[in-house]
């Protein structure tokens, strides 16, 4: 896999929106039970809005949204989910790894407290040094920073939801310019275990495009972006990259995910292989 980051700079925002709508329409035509992955972050907010527009054009109900609840969300995130889903009139399904969340003790998750499936998954994905040991046995940190934490709290939660709700297509807001692992993604990408497709309508959008679209369409903005966060996920792992609002920062020359710990070399690629977006 190449390490280059792909940036689609030649197309106008209007053209990228048109592409996104073609992708969304194609997926809605072909799949029976599509969901939008929605985190209230800026990218998934754009996808949600685009899907809503397409649904209106097609005179159909808005697709339901899937929210991956890893237990570390900001209160502001949850408030946004409630408010927007009510205003826009669609259902939000919370995907949670209940088994893992109920096993949290302080900031640790002990393997012995997990069910067989979670134990096996944790061992499969853990990087060297991520599974630690104390007098109570083997554990990993209750964090989204590590491969194992991310996999158990997010990917497994999502995979279980895909199986439980028999989802055949998941719309996500990944973009080519985020990092090399995402730079070679395709618009509709089949996945196995569980079988479904990922639909990526905004791949060619740059971070700048996201903010342009957001302001142009007057989309709700997560309050943390005003405080200087550029990428938001868990409340213990997201950090400000500046005190300026996200859209006023130097988007083209600094790293978007610098405020999140997941930029460790190669980790995105591995997570992607195991089903994380």
């Amino acid at each position: 896999m190449t390490q280059e980051i792909r940036i689609e700079g030649g197309l106008s925002l209007n053209a990228k929106v048109a592409i996104a709508k073609i992708v969304i329409n194609d997926a809605i035509d072909r799949f029976k039970r599509p969901f939008v992955v929605w985190s209230a972050g800026k990218d998934s907010m754009v996808v949600l809005h685009l899907v809503r527009n397409v649904a209106e054009e097609r005179h159909m109900d808005m697709l339901p949204a899937l929210f991956i609840d890893h237990g570390q969300h900001y209160e502001e995130t949850i408030e946004m989910l409630d408010k927007i889903s009510k205003e826009w009139n669609f259902k939000v399904i919370y995907a949670r790894n209940e088994d893992a969340l109920s096993a949290v003790k302080g900031n640790k998750i002990y393997l012995k407290d997990l069910n067989k499936e979670n134990q096996e998954e944790a061992k499969k994905i853990a990087q060297p040094g991520e599974i630690l040991k104390d007098e109570n046995g083997e554990y990993f940190e209750y964090s989204l920073e590590t491969s194992v934490g991310n996999h158990i709290l997010k990917t497994i939660a999502m995979n279980n939801a895909i199986k439980r709700y028999r989802i055949d297509a998941l719309f996500t807001g990944i973009r080519w310019d985020e990092n090399p692992a995402r730079s070679w993604e395709v618009f509709i990408s089949p996945r196995e275990n569980p079988p479904h497709v990922r639909v990526h309508p905004i791949l060619p959008f740059t971070e700048r495009n996201i903010w342009e679209y957001t302001f142009k369409n007057n989309l709700p903005i997560h309050p943390l972006y005003y405080q200087g966060y550029r990428s938001i996920d868990g409340k213990y792992d997201s950090k400000k990259t500046s005190d300026k609002p996200a859209w006023e920062q130097d988007l083209e020359h600094t790293k978007e995910r610098a405020g999140r710990s997941q930029d460790k070399e190669g980790m995105m690629e591995k997570l992607r292989r195991f089903g994380y977006m």
Binding site: K32, R33, P34, M60, K91, R166
Partner: peptide
């Protein structure tokens, strides 16, 4: 009812 709503997917 919500479960049926999700299950029916795009069916009218």
């Amino acid at each position: 009812k919500e479960q049926i709503y999700i299950f029916k997917g795009q069916e009218s």
